[in-house]
Design a protein around this nucleic acid. Sequence first.
DNA 1: CTGACAGTAGTTTTT
DNA 2: CTACTGTCAG
Length: 785
Amino acid sequence: MCPIDDSEAFEAAAQSSLAARAMAARPAPYLDGLNPAQRQAVEALDGPVLMLAGAGTGKTKALTTRIAHLLFTGSAQSNEILAVTFTNKAAREMKERVGRLMGQTVEGMPWLGTFHAICVKLLRRHAELVDLKSNFTILDTDDQIRLLKQLIVAAHIDEKRWPARQLAGIIDHWKNRAWTPEQVPAGESAAFNNQGVALYAAYQDRLKTLNAVDFGDLLLHVVTIFQAHPDVLEQYRRWFRYILVDEYQDTNVAQYLWLRLLAGGHRNICCVGDDDQSIYGWRGAEVGNILRFEKDFPGAQVIRLEQNYRSTPHILAAASGLIAANKGRLGKTLWTEADEGEKVRLIGHWDGEEEARWIGEEAEAMQAGTRGMRPYSLDDMAILVRASHQMRAFEDRFLTIGLPYRVIGGPRFYERMEIRDAMAYFRLAVSPEDDLAFERIVNTPKRGLGDKAQQKIQQMARTNGVPLVVGARLLIETGGITGKGAGELRKLIEGIGRWHGAALDARESHIELAERILDESGYTEHWQNDKTPEAPGRLENLKELVKALEEFENLQGFLEHVALIMDNETEEQGAKISIMTLHAAKGLEFPVVFLPGWEDGLFPSQRSMDENGLKGVEEERRLAYVGITRAEEVCTISFAANRRVYGQWQSALPSRFIDELPEEHVDILTPPGLYGGGMAAPAQSGIEQAAASANVYNSPGWKRLQARSGARPMAQPRESRTITIDAQAVAAYETGARVFHQKFGYGTVTGIEGDKLDIAFDKAGEKKVVARFVVAAEQADDVPF
DNA sequence: CTGACAGTAGTTTTT
DNA sequence: CTACTGTCAG
């Protein structure tokens, strides 16, 4: 099957060519809103183009306008453009925006999608070239692990010392590099107890017999086909006249090869990306791909988008200063026309709990507009953490103070246990021979079919060369299983038969069928009887799942898409502050951003540094860069001197990235109740001092604590360090007096007006402050720490 | 086969 | 400290 035979493609081509001709007469209005660099990127249609798009520079706009321009000028039909993204979200957004630009006159772009979605399409057409049938199933990670576990056990390897998860990681890594089992280099032969490669080969064999592929295979198989069948490749080279790639810095070797193969003829490839935002090296992304672009495609145009429309100058300068410490960058200079705004704010805390407490209070204050800035909605705020376990402190705190929050990321909808279980039932209804689905639900809900019963089923199926359902039936018929289990198993098998029949004849709506399956299988009941606090949520999710079916014609269609596409973005109402990892925040933006946990070992993560050395630190630094550049107006970085790690109290130094922030763009806030400002060595200045002093690293209390490491900080910092001044004390201030303020730090009184003082703060400038908020400087130095 | 206990590990994540 | 996995006794 070649794409040119595709009648659907032909129709689309005919339609869009009419549209293009009709429009060609009119000028191109979409070009108006572009800056010169964007316009250049849009108009350079032919030959290789690298669009280096810094954070917030209107990359998606340029990309989508470029597509519009291709269509508008008649350079290509909508089905001759290959546009790849990494996520469904990005693909969806792009489709929408192209549609809007073209005024809906264009048929949807059939080849705009994720690498994986496009590969599924290609692979279904040419499955036989890699010994698959075109109706192959796509395994999720769960199935994959289960399969590998079986192979590990079969190879008599101690599954405890060599967990399936690890093998899955290794195989993934190899697939990312586009290595088939035969192509894995000799240097890797020691992997997984010297048996990695053999297990990989066995795994691929097993997948073939199951007529299944995993995510990595989608790309690997297509690359294999392209390499082994030049005629097939040639068709697609001709068919895809223009290629666009989003987030090029995230491509792995397999994706890179895939792109090079396809672009090899006409070289009309436009890659968009930002080397400074490459944060997925750990899952196979090669920054080298983007750094090497000009070598790979000689004569390539490199266009830099540098005007930033997102952040204030201080935020941009802080981010730029930080990222400058990385070597081997392509280099960009972001600039903006925005007003100066707030400096990046830096604050140190005693421990992680105080950090969470402070951020909670700060969020509330910013919501109320009592920070000398405009009020912000909670929807405008985000907390970006390095590792998901850091979220907990915030959740705990926000729950106790009743601050609404939302956690972004975490297990996705379709990854949840109940959804997978339900899907397994649906899969069986569509194809009863789906062994992995059968395995998953034989004993869910509990049917009294434990390991032993399941082994018998497996054995029966294997010796007769039949799927598990059939094996199970044989087992019952031959009396290989008796008692409660036998009855339950019979009920299940009959159920599957019934559901399969219903799915085939399609008289019943697939939605009713789905509900009936969940009902008759006892799955719904299973959760209704469950008393754990998660149970109601899970039932809710099941309802959600059934609702999602409405958008599809039948169960088959649903399952077809669900493996690749399906995020659950149930928008609850009410403003909420968002909590997510830095990785999850890429591509997003918020007026107010909190970046907690900037401590060496946590961020940059120790593991990253241990395992990848300088490369690791650089990727962490890019992550920090991504974090800062998410902020539009207010960016607050914080760190804690003490943190509970696995139940043990540990102390840490402020992140090295803090030292790398350019001082002149950073504003140092003094933590609540911390009077450490004067304790640093006087020669120190700027950020170093803030880090050192705000944390009381030099204080006796700090040293005492280090001596008895592992112990809970004995003094509750809050109580011991909060000093209230009584009314008489106010009278004591005179012009020239040295005072200390919790937020603004040290200063000198320059005037008195009733209960308000004019104070020239050393760091924060001139401010008018109510007298009870300050304390005499000497007193501050005496605080017991 | 199930529930209770012990042992162990413990970044980042899309498809 | 916690969440998950595997083992063991009922």
